[in-house]
């Protein structure tokens, strides 16, 4: 653990320049540049809002705004994007960087750090857009938003932990990489992002609680939609889960890393 942190610190210049290079690249090679980071998620939100708002109207309890559904939707997409970006990219990071790993000795732990940093920056930019939309819709933000950094941190931790596990497995069992997008799509509909939990029949609703992404989405909604502190039990469970997944990820990565370059 300590060695890993030290590695990241020693290679901080690399981390910073990788993050900068990637952002730079995205901005430089397209005309709208940084706007694309916001446009594609907002369009997705708009599509769902347009199609489903009629069905979902009046189904969102606890908020009094005619655009309630759009507000609800964005609060769900915000953590979802962060989570999936990190998991998807981490699952292929070792394979994509096989070339560098075969030729240069560097702490591999910098790879997920770079991915997480870029995802957080993307997420903050998206959050900025969400804030603007909230203001425009007359919803605004509250003091509870101050919880957001902690929530982002937990979300990032959980996603990175899971991503490292998948990324490590993917080096040896390439099917994992193929399965990740399918599971993410499945996860999107299994998580109440575009619908509310209460439309699920009472008898099955318990199953939702088995899905930790639901917990993440729920605490984000507490803060952004309902303008209140996140549910303490949910938050506590999330932190514990993040630590467990993170520890497992680190353990597997450490065990696997001597053999990794063998098969890359």
């Amino acid at each position: 653990m300590q060695a890993m942190l030290k590695g990241v610190w020693r290679y901080r210049a690399f981390v910073v320049s990788s993050v900068a290079a990637e952002l730079n690249n995205r901005v430089n090679r397209s005309r709208l540049g940084i706007l694309w980071l916001v446009i594609s998620p907002l369009v997705q939100v708009a599509i769902f809002a347009l199609i489903l708002s009629a069905i979902m109207r009046g189904r969102i309890p606890g908020i009094d705004n005619q655009f309630a559904y759009a507000i609800y939707l964005m609060a769900g997409f915000l953590p979802w994007y962060l989570f999936t970006e990190i998991v998807t990219r981490c699952s292929t990071m070792f394979i994509e960087n096989a070339n560098a790993m075969k030729k240069i000795v560097f702490p591999k732990v910098t790879l997920p750090v770079v991915i997480a940093a870029i995802a957080i920056i993307n997420n903050l930019i998206f959050f900025l857009a969400v804030t603007l939309v909230y203001l425009a819709l007359g919803h605004g933000l509250s003091l509870a938003t101050l919880w957001l950094p902690l929530l982002i941190l937990v979300n990032t931790g959980l996603a990175t932990g899971l991503g490292v596990i998948l990324g490590t497995l993917n080096v040896f069992i390439r099917d994992v990489g193929q399965m990740v997008p399918i599971f993410i799509q499945f996860g999107f509909w299994f998580t109440p992002i575009v619908y509310t939990a209460n439309i699920i029949p009472e008898a099955y609703r318990g199953a939702l609680y088995l899905n930790p992404i639901y917990w993440i989405v729920a605490v984000h909604r507490d803060v952004l939609v309902f303008k209140q502190a996140p549910d303490p039990l949910t938050l506590f469970c999330l932190v514990v889960l993040t630590l467990i997944v993170g520890a497992l990820g680190m353990f597997m990565f450490k065990r696997a890393s001597p053999e990794m370059v063998d098969v890359l």
Binding site: S17, A21, K103, I104
Partner: peptide, 27 residues
């Protein structure tokens, strides 16, 4: 072998910083 894990989208100069960083040199 060839190259040093260079990123094809970056310029030579940026790659020097990038790959140089991987080699452990400071910016």
């Amino acid at each position: 072998e060839l190259g040093m894990g260079f990123n094809p989208d970056l310029t030579g100069r940026q790659n020097v910083f990038q790959a140089g960083g991987l080699l452990g040199h400071s910016h």
